[in-house]
Amino acid sequence: MRLRAPASSANLGPGFDALGLALNLHLECRFRPAAQLQIRVNGCDAEQIPCDPSNLIWTTATGLASRLGRQLPAIDLEIQNQIPLGKGLGSSAAALVAGVVLADALLDLAWSRTQVLDEAARLEGHPDNVGACVLGGLVASATDSIGQTCAIRLDLPESCKLALIIPGGSLATHKSRAALPDMYSRADLVFNVQRTALLVAALATGTIGALRTALHDRAHQPYRAALVPELERILACTAPGLLGCTLSGAGPAVLVFYENGFDVQPAFAACLRNALWMPIAVSAAGYELSAL
């Protein structure tokens, strides 16, 4: 079978652990029954992805099977990866979703996307990246008191375009999270609640001019700036048509929002000496599973 799971950008500025956007870079897996487990990896950062039973896709699948009192058959698993690792682009979320879907297929569980999302969010610890990976598009999500995920999908307005600024280095999520405070002031809390509400309303209605206010954040980006040397300079950039920039997930990649018909790349020239500029589209679909 063939499985494709998209990359994702989480938070989108103020929507910390609540908003995610599926991006048109994919983790692709092809798998079939085999006499013994075989894993082959090609593509982006392939040298960092294990080809043994410690592979995250496989450990996720076998862990789910074990929790259900089942055992997976051996497979031949071929992985083709487009998602840079350690950049804040949802590579681990894509692998977790792929592992859950792989187990679902091999065990004939016939799970719904809601069940896949609940399991992947439980494993990830927060639903933003996996929500986008499962449903595609723009996803607002929350986890309730019994651990179930409620998620709503929206389409990004066609007038809003995206690009990624991808630095050469990587940043571990646990290190990026460790930079965050345990407590926030009331002023900062209100600031982010206002902008998260405005951001969702702006994207839902196509009022993209409001993004110039809505994309600002006080919950995580100011604290992570020391770990992403160019972040403050990137966030301060202005240009006609530029709507704003946000740290992608834990970083160090940055997501750039701009209006269709404008060329905003020159505004970031001073920030791109050691980084890649990549125009990127939204992945309208979440994961896709099909026969080979």
Score class of each variant (00 low, 15 high):
1 M>E: 10
5 A>E: 04
6 P>Q: 00
7 A>N: 07
11 N>Q: 05
17 D>N: 09
18 A>K: 09
24 N>W: 06
24 N>V: 06
26 H>Y: 15
26 H>F: 15
27 L>T: 06
27 L>N: 09
31 F>Y: 09
31 F>T: 02
33 P>R: 12
34 A>H: 12
37 L>R: 09
39 I>L: 03
40 R>D: 14
41 V>Y: 01
41 V>G: 11
43 G>L: 08
47 E>Q: 08
50 P>F: 12
51 C>F: 02
52 D>P: 00
52 D>Y: 11
53 P>V: 01
54 S>C: 01
54 S>K: 12
55 N>E: 09
56 L>D: 02
65 A>W: 02
67 R>P: 00
67 R>G: 04
70 R>P: 05
71 Q>G: 03
73 P>L: 08
75 I>D: 06
77 L>S: 00
78 E>W: 13
81 N>C: 11
83 I>V: 07
86 G>C: 02
88 G>E: 10
89 L>R: 01
89 L>H: 00
94 A>C: 02
95 A>I: 03
100 V>W: 02
103 A>G: 12
106 L>H: 13
107 L>Y: 07
111 W>K: 03
112 S>F: 05
112 S>N: 03
113 R>E: 11
113 R>C: 08
119 E>F: 14
120 A>E: 03
122 R>A: 08
126 H>M: 11
126 H>C: 11
128 D>A: 07
129 N>E: 04
130 V>Y: 13
142 A>R: 13
144 D>R: 04
147 G>I: 00
148 Q>K: 14
158 E>Y: 13
161 K>W: 01
163 A>F: 09
165 I>Q: 10
165 I>T: 01
168 G>H: 14
169 G>Q: 02
172 A>N: 11
174 H>C: 10
181 P>T: 01
182 D>T: 14
182 D>P: 04
185 S>E: 06
193 V>I: 10
195 R>E: 00
196 T>E: 03
203 L>H: 00
205 T>N: 13
206 G>T: 11
207 T>M: 13
208 I>N: 04
213 T>H: 06
216 H>W: 13
218 R>G: 12
218 R>K: 14
222 P>M: 14
223 Y>A: 14
229 P>R: 15
230 E>N: 15
235 L>P: 04
239 A>M: 02
239 A>F: 10
241 G>K: 12
241 G>H: 13
242 L>Q: 06
243 L>P: 03
245 C>K: 14
255 L>P: 01
257 F>W: 08
258 Y>S: 02
268 F>W: 12
269 A>N: 10
270 A>H: 13
271 C>W: 06
271 C>H: 07
272 L>R: 05
274 N>P: 07
281 A>G: 08
281 A>E: 03
285 A>P: 11
285 A>C: 15
288 E>T: 14
290 S>D: 09
292 L>N: 15
